[in-house]
Lab assay of single mutants.
Amino acid sequence: MASQGTKRSYEQMETDGERQNATEIRASVGKMIDGIGRFYIQMCTELKLSDYEGRLIQNSLTIERMVLSAFDERRNKYLEEHPSAGKDPKKTGGPIYKRVDRKWMRELVLYDKEEIRRIWRQANNGDDATAGLTHMMIWHSNLNDTTYQRTRALVRTGMDPRMCSLMQGSTLPRRSGAAGAAVKGVGTMVMELIRMIKRGINDRNFWRGENGRKTRSAYERMCNILKGKFQTAAQRAMMDQVRESRNPGNAEIEDLIFLARSALILRGSVAHKSCLPACVYGPAVASGYDFEKEGYSLVGIDPFKLLQNSQVYSLIRPNENPAHKSQLVWMACNSAAFEDLRVLSFIRGTKVSPRGKLSTRGVQIASNENMDAMESSTLELRSRYWAIRTRSGGNTNQQRASAGQISVQPAFSVQRNLPFDKPTIMAAFTGNTEGRTSDMRAEIIRMMEGAKPEEMSFQGRGVFELSDERAANPIVPSFDMSNEGSYFFGDNAEEYDN
């Protein structure tokens, strides 16, 4: 993207840094990872977990959730003011799984939030270390993106479920800051804005008074975040219109849905970061690795190297396929839920299948599930090659597409044709070009129609051997075009429920 120079890199967003050079960025990201790792080690000690239990991804998720809940100030305040039966607002906890007599047992633990905050700050040299908290939120978000298709949420806001490739980060909490905003897809931002506008339509006082002023500035800020994701002048001009509207209503909703559809071809720039579970960072720190000293990046080879040398386990339900569970977590670790499966298959070195073909449910185990038949197995999170994460949407291309997802959002900077089903997408653009945004709409449609099938995206960008740390010898991959490109292809993934 041309304006790259004016933006802070995501590592800076990730670490609240002012302008830093590459070495400083690597050190501050490393410091953040160190903090998460030290916190995780301490929690495993508190909970008396064995090494194996500490490497269980379900335990990692519970521990991450506990610290996120302990620092969720708004919710904590709300819980104190609106006490609900049987919930102690000062405590947080969740299921911890232990191996007892050759069987997995679930144990519900409860801790004072104050105590968890103390352990977290102690692991982070006394700081609140917001960057580390956001990092864990993005890992949870990436896992949700890989596990669930947001059909219901899309339909509720009037969008087409086939636009799911635009929904990265749709389950990120509001408090995820600049680093969170960077990884949100165009569809996620559109959905947040539509929800806001709908509230304004239904509630006369939404934009009024002292609160209304705050609401208005939040609305304009979200519009600017979305505008910054678009790469064409016409899309940005249309966002200006939406932002400046005196009284946002149905016309703005129409414009936003139009823009979301246009992003299936004229893709937005959305950041991709490899955020790993805390149970990967903990053992690495415990083994003596100093992330701050060595430096770390979320968008280069580092996460690949770390996963190459990590042992992570997962509980497996009786009829689940461990290899499929591994694929789910591998995609989440690489922030690749909406990437082209052919690119992923090449990088991973084994075939990556669409969601609907995987015999696996989510990673988390519900409290009512029976533990008797639970097994555990090693997650295979290694890769054959590594590639640089991208934040450009890439230019655009036609490809055989599917009944489910009709476009992709690249996660890796790797040369390819970008699949999208042009006739299906263009069919949504018939007729409606009147109104105050008509010239911009016409211009956007013209650009979409001009998108050429034979153009290559990320020209000359390749993948790298894991021994090639400096990215000196790019390998331009070859793809098996007979395979499906979309992950949520004609899909039956479970729906995400809060």
Rank of each mutant, 00 (worst) to 15 (best):
A2D: 00
A2T: 00
S3G: 03
S3N: 14
Q4V: 11
Q4N: 15
G5N: 07
G5H: 02
T6Q: 00
K7N: 13
R8V: 00
M13G: 07
D16A: 04
G17H: 01
G17A: 12
E24A: 09
I25K: 10
A27K: 15
V29L: 05
M32Y: 04
I33V: 14
D34H: 10
G35D: 06
F39Y: 12
Y40N: 05
C44D: 03
E46S: 04
E46G: 07
K48N: 12
K48F: 07
K48T: 13
D51Q: 13
R55Q: 12
N59D: 13
L61N: 10
E64A: 03
V67R: 01
L68R: 06
K77Q: 09
L79R: 04
E81F: 13
E81G: 13
D88G: 02
P89R: 02
K90P: 00
K90H: 14
G93N: 04
P95L: 03
K98T: 13
R99G: 11
R99E: 06
V100L: 14
D101E: 14
K103C: 12
K103R: 14
M105V: 11
M105D: 09
R106N: 12
D112T: 05
I116Q: 07
R117V: 13
R117E: 07
W120L: 07
R121I: 10
R121V: 10
N125R: 13
D127V: 15
A129F: 03
T130V: 15
T130M: 13
A131H: 14
H135D: 07
M136I: 15
M137P: 09
I138G: 03
W139M: 09
L143K: 08
N144Y: 06
N144P: 05
D145E: 12
D145R: 05
Q149M: 09
A153H: 11
R156N: 02
R156F: 01
T157L: 09
G158L: 13
M159L: 15
M159G: 03
P161N: 04
R162I: 10
C164S: 13
C164R: 02
Q168C: 07
P173G: 03
R174T: 11
R174P: 01
S176Y: 09
A178K: 12
A179L: 05
A179M: 07
G180R: 06
V183G: 03
K184R: 07
K184S: 07
K184I: 06
T188M: 03
T188L: 04
E192S: 05
E192Y: 12
I194E: 09
R195V: 03
I197N: 11
K198Q: 13
R199N: 02
R199H: 11
I201L: 15
N202E: 01
R208S: 05
R213Q: 08
T215Q: 13
R216A: 08
S217F: 07
Y219Q: 06
E220N: 03
R221E: 12
I225Y: 11
I225N: 13
K229V: 04
F230Q: 09
T232V: 07
Q235E: 05
Q235I: 10
A237G: 15
M239P: 02
V242C: 14
R243C: 01
E244Y: 02
S245P: 15
N247D: 06
I253G: 05
I253P: 02
I253E: 11
I257K: 05
L259A: 14
A260W: 06
R261G: 08
S262Q: 12
G268A: 08
A271S: 13
A271D: 09
K273R: 09
Y281W: 11
P283M: 14
P283K: 09
A284I: 09
S287P: 10
G288S: 11
Y289A: 12
D290R: 07
K293L: 07
K293G: 14
G295N: 08
Y296S: 11
S297F: 12
D302N: 15
P303S: 11
K305Y: 09
L306A: 12
L307H: 07
L307E: 11
Q308E: 01
N309A: 14
S310T: 14
S310N: 04
Q311M: 01
V312P: 00
V312F: 09
Y313V: 09
Y313A: 10
S314G: 12
S314W: 03
S314V: 14
I316M: 14
I316G: 02
R317P: 06
R317A: 06
R317Y: 03
R317F: 05
P318D: 06
N319Q: 15
A323Q: 13
H324R: 05
K325A: 01
K325V: 03
Q327N: 12
L328K: 04
L328W: 03
L328Q: 09
W330V: 08
A332K: 11
A332N: 06
C333P: 02
S335G: 10
S335H: 06
A337P: 11
E339G: 08
D340F: 08
D340L: 09
L341G: 08
L341W: 10
V343K: 07
V343A: 09
V343Q: 06
L344R: 02
L344P: 03
L344N: 10
S345K: 03
S345L: 04
R348K: 12
G349I: 02
K351R: 11
S353I: 14
P354L: 08
P354S: 04
P354R: 15
R355A: 07
L358T: 13
T360N: 09
Q364S: 09
I365H: 09
A366Q: 02
S367Q: 09
N370K: 07
M371A: 14
D372F: 07
D372Y: 06
D372P: 05
A373C: 13
M374A: 05
M374W: 07
S376K: 09
S377N: 13
L381V: 09
S383I: 03
A387W: 04
A387I: 02
R389E: 11
T390Y: 00
G393Q: 05
N397P: 00
N397D: 02
Q398Y: 12
Q399I: 02
Q399R: 15
R400V: 04
R400K: 15
S402C: 07
S402D: 00
G404R: 05
G404I: 03
Q405E: 05
A411D: 00
F412W: 03
Q415D: 00
R416K: 13
N417R: 15
D421N: 14
D421K: 00
P423I: 06
T424W: 08
T424F: 03
A428C: 15
A428P: 01
F429I: 04
T433W: 01
E434N: 10
E434K: 12
R436E: 09
T437E: 03
S438T: 03
D439C: 02
D439K: 01
R441L: 07
R441E: 05
I445P: 02
I445T: 14
M447E: 08
M447G: 06
M447P: 00
M447A: 06
M447R: 13
M448V: 06
E449A: 03
S457T: 11
F458Y: 15
Q459V: 02
Q459N: 13
G460W: 07
R461N: 04
V463C: 14
L466K: 02
E469A: 14
A472G: 08
N473A: 02
N473G: 00
N473L: 12
N473D: 04
S478Q: 15
S478I: 02
F479I: 15
D480H: 14
S482R: 05
N483L: 13
G485K: 10
G485W: 14
S486M: 06
S486C: 09
Y487G: 00
F489W: 01
G490P: 00
G490A: 08
D491A: 07
A493F: 06
A493T: 14
E495K: 13
E495L: 04
